[in-house]
């Protein structure tokens, strides 16, 4: 379980996060939703200790993040975080060199699944393929927690479908996922939990199936209520 407890983040005088709290349960897909620029990425960065927070606490299975945690939790940002001069195979080798949790078999399987060529240089990849390599580098780690920042934004529809397929495949099996998006319709039926953010606060946190069952509302219905009261 990832617990985000009352975190506040300021950039200069601007408060990006103002007491954000939510939990992401084990084995579930949690989706951080915000119309735009509401600090979703900042939350993921904070969980990974890639940006300091001014107040609050983040616990991963009850512990603060340590260097060993990076074998159990990984973050797939919205762009590949490897050197553009690398080939796909170089990037994979880099991961294999540093992570014990790197699963070469799964990585190769995903190369097949996404129909990628290992000899392609990262700088020459199309947006769609770039996003797939980005996914691959994170998903091929045998980690418990996966954080993904806007995996569907700015890529063609077929790449989107392929990436959405990943969520229902064994690649995500038994893993907890936190995903951010501003466009929920792609993954409406894929997520367990939705966390609606605005102006640095959580407006509502709910289980999608429960809302459908108890209130007969879709995620978008709830968003409409929350964002346009």
């Amino acid at each position: 379980m990832i617990e985000v407890k009352d975190i506040t983040k300021r950039f200069g005088r601007k408060k990006i996060l103002n007491g954000v709290s939510f939990t992401a349960n084990k084995g579930e897909i949690t989706c951080l939703i915000g119309i735009n620029g509401v600090g979703k990425t900042t939350i993921l960065n904070a969980i990974m200790n890639l940006t300091p927070i001014n107040r609050g606490e983040i616990l991963i299975d009850g512990e603060k993040i340590r260097k060993e945690s990076y074998e159990r939790i990984t973050f797939i940002p919205d762009a590949i975080t490897m050197l553009p001069s690398m080939k796909i195979s170089d990037a994979m080798q880099f991961m294999a060199d540093f992570y014990q949790s790197w699963n070469q078999k799964r990585a190769d399987e995903m190369i097949e699944f996404f129909k990628l060529d290992k000899n392609d240089r990262l700088s020459t990849l199309s947006k769609g393929n770039s996003a797939k390599v980005n996914m691959l580098l994170g998903l091929a780690l045998d980690v418990d927690y996966l954080l993904m920042d806007e995996p569907f934004s700015g890529i063609d529809i077929f790449s989107r479908e392929q990436i959405a397929d990943v969520f229902t495949s064994h690649l995500v099996e038994n893993r907890s996922v936190i995903i951010t998006t501003h466009e929920i319709s792609d993954i409406e039926h894929l997520i367990d939990k939705a966390v609606l953010l605005n102006d640095g606060v959580v407006l509502r946190e709910f289980n999608a199936e429960e809302v459908r069952e108890n209130e007969g509302k879709s995620i978008i219905d709830v968003m409409r209520e929350v964002y346009q009261p």
Partner: peptide
């Protein structure tokens, strides 16, 4: 530098920074 900021990867390595 750039869109592909490598520092993300470096800071997420399971090793002391």
């Amino acid at each position: 530098f750039g869109k592909n900021t490598f520092v993300y990867r470096l800071f997420m390595l399971p090793t002391a920074r």
